[in-house]
Amino acid sequence: MELKNHTILITGGTSGIGLAFAQKFAELGNRVIITARNQEKLDKVLAENPDLTGFASDVSDEKSLTELSKFIVANFPDLDILLNSAGIMRAINLFDDELSLAELTAEVDTNLLGTIAVTQKFLTVLSKNHGTVINVSSGLSNLADGAHPIYNLTKAGVHFYSDALREQAKHFGHDLRVVELVPPLVAETNLEAHSDTTAPNNMRLSDLIEETLTGLSKNAERIDAGFAKTLHTMGKVDSEENTRKLSASMLRSYFPPTK
Rank of each mutant, 00 (worst) to 15 (best):
L104H: 02
T105Q: 10
E107S: 03
V108Y: 05
V108G: 02
D109E: 14
T110Y: 01
T110K: 01
L112M: 12
L113P: 00
G114C: 09
T115R: 00
I116Q: 02
V118K: 00
T119L: 00
L123G: 02
T124I: 07
T124Y: 12
T124R: 13
L126C: 07
L126K: 02
S127W: 08
S127E: 15
S127P: 15
G131Q: 12
G131R: 08
V133C: 06
S137Q: 05
S137D: 08
S137W: 02
L140Q: 09
N142P: 02
L143K: 10
L143H: 10
D145F: 01
A147F: 09
T154V: 06
A156Y: 11
A156R: 11
A156P: 15
G157P: 00
H159C: 13
H159T: 15
H159W: 09
F160S: 14
F160H: 14
S162V: 01
S162Y: 01
D163F: 01
A164H: 12
L165P: 13
E167F: 05
K170E: 15
H171G: 11
G173M: 13
H174N: 14
R177M: 11
L181T: 01
L181A: 05
P184C: 05
L185Y: 06
N190S: 07
N190I: 00
E192K: 05
A193C: 02
H194I: 02
H194V: 06
D196S: 08
T197A: 11
T198F: 11
N202M: 01
R204M: 04
S206Y: 01
D207T: 06
D207C: 00
I209S: 01
I209F: 04
I209H: 01
E210L: 08
T212E: 04
T214Q: 13
T214L: 10
G215W: 00
L216Q: 01
S217P: 08
K218F: 09
K218P: 00
A220K: 12
